[in-house]
Amino acid sequence: MSKLRETLEAGAFPVVVELKPPKGTGVDEMLAVVKALAGRVTAFSVPDNEHAKMRLSAIAAARLVQEAGGEALVHFTCRDRNRLALESDLLGAASLGLENLLLVSGDYVTLGDHPQAKPVYDADSVQLLQIAAGLMDGHDSAGLALTGSPAFFLGAVVIPEAEPLPPQLMKFEKKLAAGAQFFITPPVFDLDKLRRFREHLPEAPVKLLVSVKVLGADEVAQAAAGQWRKVYSLPPDLVNDLAGKEPEDILALGVKAAGRLVQQIRQEKLADGVYLKAKGRTDLFTQVLDAAGF
């Protein structure tokens, strides 16, 4: 069974770190993170052409992660594949021993590095969850029986700071109904916002992994210039503290802030685990884990 699932179900506060599959075939750097941290974190998350920027196949990267001794959480985006490809890739992932999935709609193509590509979205994220749940039940989306069905641990995204929130909550309910077993949020910096969001969660036990991110200099500059356009907010105090500092100093302060957030989220039980984003860098992940007391 998936270690991520076991850890979540045991209430043991898993830590997932997000890798950056290479743009190219040079996987050494990505796998070095796995080798360095496999004993310290629960799973390694592998985005699927994140931000619509073409990178090494998430399924292949996730398999390499497992061969290097880590457990993978592989993302599936609806943007790049129709239902046939989604389903056969889901079966392919299962046959390679991949169990943890994060099923997402996917950032739009024009925001990425192949803006002229055809966007697919044959399924949306709710329908993709249904498709994956159907495969687990032994049938494909056309209702045809499978020979051998996969075992997945199905993850989905929820946006605590969505504005407006009600349509997001409606989608969240649909994802639950479609078979989502755990949820991951975008980065959270303002825990009050997370506390308020938690009031909307249903009674049913839902496993929530909250993302904690180490900010980079580019992001701080963007926020300081008033050009922040993301689905999560940055507290003005944090931006003021970091703005204008040297990139390495920003990272160092960002690591401290991330460590504090992880600690607080854990102490206050604001989530069942955390999902760390730190440019896919071992040194930053290690420092955050140290700062958080892991």
Partner: peptide, 17 residues
């Protein structure tokens, strides 16, 4: 994206990603 079941995760202040 032609999504049939609700907003994607990219809506910012009610506007499209």
């Amino acid at each position: 994206k032609g999504l049939l079941n609700g907003p994607c995760g990219g809506t910012v202040n009610g506007h499209c990603e």
